[in-house]
Design a protein around this nucleic acid. Sequence first.
DNA 1: CAATTTGTATCTACACATTTT
DNA 2: GAAAATGTGTAGATACAAATT
Lengths: 462, 462
Amino acid sequence: MSVNSFDNYPLAWKPEKEKLKQPYFKALAEDLENRIKRGILKPGTKLPPQREIADYLNLNYTTITRVYEICKKKGLVYGAAGKGTFVSPHSSENITITASNLTDGCIEMGAVNGFSEYTELTERATRAVVEKGYLRNLYEYTHPAGQPHQLAAGIRWMEQLGVHTDNEHTAIFAGAQNAITVALVSLFSPGDKIATDQYTYSNLIELAKLLHIVLVPIRGDKNGMCPDDLKRQCGTNKMKGIYLMPSCANPTTIVISKERREELAAVIRKHRLILIEDDVSAWMPTSIGNMLPSMFDLLAGQSIYICGMTKNLCPGLRIAYMTFAECFRQEILHGLFNINVKTSSLDAEIITELILNGDAYKIAEHKHSLTERACALFAKYFPECWKEHGKISYYQWMPIEIEKPFRDIEEDFISQGIRVYHSERFAVAKNQGHNFLRVTLCSAGSMRKLEKGLQILKSCLD
Amino acid sequence: MSVNSFDNYPLAWKPEKEKLKQPYFKALAEDLENRIKRGILKPGTKLPPQREIADYLNLNYTTITRVYEICKKKGLVYGAAGKGTFVSPHSSENITITASNLTDGCIEMGAVNGFSEYTELTERATRAVVEKGYLRNLYEYTHPAGQPHQLAAGIRWMEQLGVHTDNEHTAIFAGAQNAITVALVSLFSPGDKIATDQYTYSNLIELAKLLHIVLVPIRGDKNGMCPDDLKRQCGTNKMKGIYLMPSCANPTTIVISKERREELAAVIRKHRLILIEDDVSAWMPTSIGNMLPSMFDLLAGQSIYICGMTKNLCPGLRIAYMTFAECFRQEILHGLFNINVKTSSLDAEIITELILNGDAYKIAEHKHSLTERACALFAKYFPECWKEHGKISYYQWMPIEIEKPFRDIEEDFISQGIRVYHSERFAVAKNQGHNFLRVTLCSAGSMRKLEKGLQILKSCLD
DNA sequence: CAATTTGTATCTACACATTTT
DNA sequence: GAAAATGTGTAGATACAAATT
């Protein structure tokens, strides 16, 4: 085949043959990375097959395999045998959700702050800790995983969430995100694959990118992740772990049903996946009423359970509990020592005080009733959506019809005075066709502001 | 060459030809890993040349390259062109230093706790923070890098250490180890190489292993790392970064001289290395007297400066400041958001209070005078060592003559009633020939106990 | 359901750099 | 200082697996 026959061929990526320097695979990988990062190659774009690029450049096609491999490790592209290689959805952009400052007057319905304005009982607990004369014990280096009584309080808290464990298999971390980091760093290596929902916690997506861990989206329905698709992907993809939020997925608010939990557990057990169960919303008192079995209990022996205390109690105190199977014990503690050394004892002690004096439950109840009120407001403005997708939750998941780049959509809302997040921020793979908004109800600052925000949202969508 | 001619050849590693299954390189890598982890192949052992193994197994020798490559990425072995491939010093063992519990009566001269028994002023600051009525502002999600006044306090503290920066280039982390983690995760990728001293902070060694970052030891002398060896390694090794503790290296207590700092800065600048400056001991008031220019100021634009507040103020409050060049800003903050979300505001506020009311300086002075007293005790029992290596420091570096596995040596000391750490714990590459002990002077709990510990040490070495 | 397209895994080939002799 | 030993970097060949047509 003539070398020049591709000159007018429509290859999405056509490296300049003349400028190509040795080593080829590095030069090509850099070129590809540049084009993706500069936005010349947009997310979702199908790259030319390895053999075409190779023919065009007169190289062996496995050299192009190397090029795609390098970019894959960086999370810039992903490949599928038989289909092709594609530019990753978030390759060129940072979707981290953080409490960045909003313009004055703009109503926060993006970040999930968990009604952080309610702090009376936490303040009281802080005073109690300081007055107890126990302070000097909190300033020491000892008990890097947490002091025994602090762990005991955490275990008690998790007990009511359907997770049964003991001091030897529990540790305290500086928040759920920090706990996930330690779990990923300690138990996974770059290139390992973790199954997730198609939409998941956006900071997990970013963290996985940072650690060069590959997230593999699994199809789901109203009851959660589909066991069949998980099975299929496990067969072909050599998955090492799975990340689930069974009690109320972020952002979709899907609760995994009892049957589904058992079906998933069977697949996870069979393929020996490491399960990371992130229980952000189990605290909701209603869910305690009709409690579902924790995945951790279903899969004791191959699970990590993470229970963050920031969103339900107090975001400024960075505390999460992690419970782990015996086989992960050494590695998790090793990771904890080397990433954090230890977690702030003072923060841990305040949360401990809140659990032991019962105020943690009062805060949870109070926040639950606030959530109910906020949901009622939401239902008032969006009755169909509430009927279809509604859950008592800090946020709602709302289908929208707008076809625009997602950043533009978000910015349009900001210019109207509200911040909400678009589903693409949470998408593990390329766009799924449907678009949604995650509408947070717990961060506006007051019910009055929330109602105003919902009114703005309504008027924007009409 | 006959396939069987190696049967009686003394290869340190001779995989069983019969049991070998495909894929060869994976099977071989697993076999090698097993033998190293089970201790059959001991640290320092020279592995057979790639070509010999290959001949023996009738494989192409680059297949063995792959095998060694896999084990190298796991930190199990290291190779040197022209020399051979060797089993890594810490391949089979975890050298993490943590505040694990000591048997009753055993005197702690291993971990560095920084005279943590002195907590009066910290307790007072904690009370002050609680009483100021500012608590509710600490419970929020905002200002993930730290509140402006907290950053300002940190900047003021760093100012006196010779580091000049501003709010936009400073962030608060949950301790120095946590700050290093974020720097490594945000700015480096698996396989990247970082230059370090031959002996360095053992938790850095473990952290690098966890993140699959390769540490390259550079020769040093009494004035610190040798610029020539750094230059040489940069030429051949494609280094991406360098980690230094210029103000007082852990564990060697070496202070990098002014001239040396400038020489090193020139090499670092030329090769565009990312400098991570870990300033654990700059707080020592004496060093403030005759202050040396910070590497950060010498290399503004390509540096990260980390200032941990745990060892000098209070280990239980997990706070460190990090200052970074503009070009790292986005990546560092991105890493912070995704690894920690944010740092405990309460801890940060207490440290802020200590800096602003001046008590931080008093604590530092008090700890310095304790350190001087402890060093005087050390000099009394080990006058030659003090004369040769002594520095006013939380720990001392002491040559020893014992030839035994390092764990055995440490355990011998423990059975005598003291915990000290052996130099091999801090060795980045294979054993250097000389052996040392790091003798910590700030963790015994009292001067009386410290003296008793030194007496035991003396009697053990006589 | 067979043929085709496309990516992946594994092993081989060879030029080259560094260290030792 | 040349030759030999030894690890490293880059590219190619081949068999195979998954998805599409």
